[in-house]
Design a protein around this nucleic acid. Structure first.
Length: 921
RNA sequence: GCCGAAGUGGCGGAACAGGCAGACGCGCACGACUCAAAAUCGUGUUCCCUCGGGAGUGUGGGUUCGAUUCCCACCUUCGGCACCA
């Protein structure tokens, strides 16, 4: 065997050995404690990038660490394989989504194996595999049966040009990213899941150890607010229900506002206002994201001509429509109290509507005619009939006496009720796409909806499909798929929408338990042992959607009794199932994002014809950043490209965004590409740049592995940044871990000649035990960078001991073997190789984690800090076990002290055991 | 605008139940080895300085014998939400 450290030789060798021995097969064993470590499954986009490594390597090291500590660890991997990019590849490059996806999966499997992770590949699950999506469909049917799935109206991004629905990520600045054509908001009938039914339970995080920021984001996302529903009546006699968090301001309601899409708008609109109302509604439907985001946007609306009666005082108030009232929140209608709500106040001032204060703060009285802003603070109720004088506090919801009292009173009188509203909306799961799990629904000729019987699942996605450039789902014109029969054998139409891919990833942690099981989504025997997931690792970008959906899914599964059998088995083995199936993952840790090496964005120089805030460019050059100042002149624009669609770019011209549209025949100059350039080349160039800027794709893990070996790459990823923060990739730093492994390679095989220096042996043992303690605590706490730093300290101590000699055989072996064991989770191959070369039993990954002894780790000497008025003036080496009085005496005897004390007696002496003495004069 | 996280050497980052600021690593400088370079090894590396010291953890205050750590105000960056009635 060669003496040179050659990762290219030893890494594949051990990977094959481990595979052959089934070293990482995780099997149910009730005699041992279980640990289910889960890391977010990747989307098979083509190549594993360094971000995947940054997420998965430390997760793997942590799983290995838990395994060495005696747990039976399950650490599975799979692919979230449905989704839009596959379909885009089909349209753009004429590759079938299935072909594209499975080719990518194959490539990524190979890359994942090169990582040397302890994935149990026999538990791999792939969500686009019929054996998987059969159960995704099966879940849909269960949801439908229990009234948790329903058809409702939902807003979609609709392209008039393409006559198709676009996903949010396909829409940039209110335009289709591919064609640059405008996109409108349109109501369509879609499938929803009733996640709102679980809103209250989802707000309860007591059973789980999740990071505060995630809990907070979910809490805000759910957005619970307490208030009342109040029924107003239109003059035509129709009830108009509103939700308000401030029922105590009912007497101050001077007008009502309906969302433009509200059902009653047509009915309350008077003939003379109809034209204005219709025009406003049409304009609201066109409102694009860019308009809604505009900060200077003023409130707009129109009067309907109709009036409503306020149920508490019989006041006749005008009904308006305005797009600041959202059809999707509350009842889509509000009572407007301009005196005490800033939005209503702005609207009232804009259109000259009445402002009547009904809460009086202490001090100067409010006057509706002269108020400059709505008053939202505490006070007492006024102009509110029997409630006059009721105190109003700053508390929200029923905890505020005025809100509670009025809400109760409304309920008694029958014109309202206490109500709790949520910002959270039901989960829209329909996607007008091909590459997703089919929804197993059939529409009978009479319009009735049926589920495909379980025995006939899965509804298979047809392979023989034709992709049209419009992006329309091929299922919509695939006759074989479309035409089916209902339960009575009559012709019926199949649902052509497929499911949101979040549906697939909401239950994959259960499929991993038994990916080939065919009598249910998972095997209860496996579930009883492994569930719940003990630690889930992944990016914080999934804080709300995915993590909320999977919690919801688990709660539904529990309520449908899908865990009952697993709970029974769990009890049989003496483990209490109470609460084990309320949450999918009891622990959660987020890693940060790793970015490409930092670089400036592209700056363009565009000449053309300017019309208002848009320039139609006849000539575009990509220029070196910094060569020309950003700015805007008559026919010239210089600035960094911030966003782009097909041929429309948003350019930063010095703090402001300006639109540049590239004319079809424009002259393009991209210095990085030789010869005459076309719009397509410009687009391609910008795409590549943008990707490398935001996703770090410039860093290719395969090349790094080829150059340094997976062990070094793993160690560097764990060392180079804080795991929960990430940061820009830096090539230089990898030399640190590279040298570490080189040193370990030599230390592990060193022919050591032992000595008999007891003090040196004791010192090396002390360091060894200190490092074991530090690495154990850091791995426990996901502080991977400091764990690797501690391992480097042990390496330094061993090298120093080797240089100086004298350490006895036992201390040397303890240090070297501890070094290998501590490094094993980080760099599994080199440690396995050295462990074997030292003649120790296979496998290092089946050894127990080293234990430290606090007595051995204890320092004998400390450097006592002597301070005068908090400033360090001297350091004295003393024994670590001196008493306070002894420390004080040692400090006061310091001869360096006299020049600082200046003859004055100390006023106070503070002794901190084992650390310092501070003398106050 | 609201909510959250974070600001420490040239760089990544240590240290926060208040107690030596800068662990560990990168880079850099000098030295050794070499004809030379790379690699390797050794020494040094917060800044200023009149070599006594002085200043220093985003800024300004405060509490304390003592503050990177606690409190108040502000600035910057990054994430989330964004007319939520």
């Amino acid at each position: 065997m060669s003496d040179v450290y050659d990762p290219a030789a030893i890494e594949p060798k051990w990977q094959e050995q481990w595979e052959a021995d089934g070293l990482y097969r995780a099997k149910v064993d009730w005699e041992r404690p279980k640990y289910y470590a889960l890391t977010m499954l990747p989307y098979p986009s083509g190549d594993l990038h360094i971000g995947h490594w940054f997420a998965m390597t430390p997760s793997d090291a942590r799983a290995r660490f838990m395994r060495m500590r005696g747990y039976n660890v399950l650490f599975p991997m799979g692919f979230d394989a449905f989704g839009l990019p596959a379909e885009n590849a089909a349209i753009q490059r004429n590759i079938h989504p299935k072909t594209w996806t499975y080719a990518n999966i194959e490539r990524m499997r190979r890359q994942l194996r090169s990582m040397g992770a302890m994935f149990d590949w026999q538990r791999e699950a792939v969500s686009c595999d019929p054996a998987y999506y059969q159960w995704t469909e099966w879940f849909f049917s269960r949801f439908f049966e229990h009234d948790l799935a329903y058809r409702g109206e939902g807003l979609v991004n609709w392209s008039e040009t393409l006559q198709t629905v676009l996903a949010n990520e396909q829409v940039i600045d209110g335009k289709d990213e591919r064609t640059g054509q405008p996109v409108i908001q349109k109501m369509m009938e879609q499938w929803f899941f009733r996640i709102t039914r679980y809103a209250d339970e989802l707000l309860d995080f007591t059973p789980i150890d999740w990071p505060d920021p995630v809990r907070l984001m979910q809490t805000n996302w759910i957005g619970r607010s307490e208030g009342a529903r109040v029924v107003f009546t239109s003059e035509s006699g129709d009830p108009i229900e509103v939700f308000t968090t401030r029922p105590d301001t009912l007497w101050g309601a001077t007008f009502m506002v309906l969302a433009p899409e509200h059902d009653l708008v047509d009915k309350v609109t008077g003939d003379e206002q109809r034209a204005a109302v219709d025009a406003y509604r049409a304009q609201a439907a066109r409102a694009t994201e860019i308009e809604r985001l505009s900060e200077t946007r003023e409130k707009t609306g129109v009067f309907t001509g109709g009036y409503a009666i306020n149920p508490v005082n019989g006041a006749r108030i005008p009904i308006w429509i305005a797009d600041y009232v959202l059809s999707t929140y509350g009842t889509g209608a509000i009572m407007a109290v301009p005196a005490h709500d800033q939005r209503d106040f702005d609207f009232a001032r804009q259109y000259g509507l009445d402002i009547v204060p009904v809460i009086q703060p202490e001090g100067e009285p409010l006057d509706g005619a002269t108020m400059a802003a709505a008053y939202v603070g505490p006070g007492v109720m006024v102009n509110s009939a029997l409630f006059d004088g009721t105190p109003v506090t700053a508390a929200k919801g029923f905890a505020n006496p005025s809100i509670g009292a009025v809400a109760d009173w409304l309920a008694e009188r029958g014109c309202g009720a206490k109500s709790i509203n949520y910002r959270l909306r039901d989960w829209l799961i329909s996607r007008q796409r091909y590459w997703g799990a089919p929804i197993p629904a059939v529409f009978a000729a009479d319009g009735a909806i049926e589920m495909v019987p379980d025995a006939q699942l899965p509804v298979l996605l047809p392979d023989d499909v034709e992709f049209r450039p419009t992006g329309q789902s091929p299922l919509r014109y695939h006759d074989g798929f479309l035409n089916t029969t209902d339960a009575d054998g009559r012709p019926a139409r199949r649902e052509t929408d497929t499911m949101d891919t979040f549906m697939c990833s909401s239950w994959y942690q259960y499929r991993y338990l038994s990916p080939t099981y065919d009598r249910g989504p998972f095997d209860p025997q496996e579930a009883a042992y492994w569930l719940p997931v003990d630690v889930y690792t992944g990016g914080q970008e999934h804080a709300t959607m995915h993590l909320l959906y999977t919690r919801f899914f688990t709660k539904v599964m529990r309520d449908l009794g899908l865990f009952d059998e697993a709970a029974r088995i769990m009890s049989e083995h003496g483990r209490d199932p109470a609460g084990q199936f309320d949450e999918p993952m009891t622990g959660l840790r987020n890693q940060g994002q790793i970015l490409g090496a930092e670089r400036k964005g592209d700056v363009i120089l565009a000449y053309g014809r300017r019309e208002g805030n848009k320039l139609t460019a006849a000539r575009v050059e990509v220029i070196e950043p910094g060569t020309m100042p950003p700015g805007l002149r008559d026919d010239v624009v210089v600035g960094e490209i911030m966003r782009r669609t097909e041929n429309v770019m948003q350019v930063d011209v010095g703090g402001e965004l300006f639109t540049v549209e590239v004319a079809p025949n424009a002259v393009i100059s991209v210095p990085a590409i030789e010869g005459d350039n076309t719009v397509n080349q410009l687009r391609h160039h910008l795409d590549v740049q943008r990707m490398s800027k935001s996703k770090g794709n410039v860093v290719n893990p395969d090349e790094l592995v080829a150059q340094f070996g997976a062990d070094t790459v793993r160690a560097y990823l764990m060392f180079f940044a804080k795991w929960d923060q990430g940061g820009p990739w830096n090539y230089e730093g990898i030399k640190g871990p590279q040298r570490l492994l080189q040193d370990v390679w030599e230390i592990g095989q060193a022919q050591y000649t032992p000595g008999e220096d007891a003090a040196a042996s004791r010192a090396l043992r002390r360091k060894t035990h200190q490092v074991i303690r530090k690495v154990t605590q850091d791995m426990e706490a996901f502080s991977f960078n400091t764990a690797v730093a501690a391992i480097m300290e042990l390496r330094n101590a061993i090298l120093a001991a080797q240089r100086e000699g004298g350490v006895d055989r036992a201390a040397w072996n303890e240090a070297v073997e501890s070094l290998l064991l501590l490094l094993a989770p980080v760099s599994p191959h080199i440690t396995e190789e050295l462990w074997a070369r030292r003649g120790l039993p296979y496998s290092i990954h089946e050894q127990l984690w080293p234990q430290w002894d606090d007595d051995v780790a204890r320092e004998e000497q400390i450097s006592l800090i002597v301070q005068v008025n908090g400033k360090t003036r001297d350091r004295i080496e003393v024994a670590a076990d001196l008493t306070d009085d002894e420390l004080r005496a040692v400090a006061l005897s310091s001869d360096k002290l006299s020049r600082w004390l200046d003859g004055k007696p100390p006023r106070q002496v503070i002794v901190v055991r084992g650390k310092l003495v501070n003398i106050v004069v």
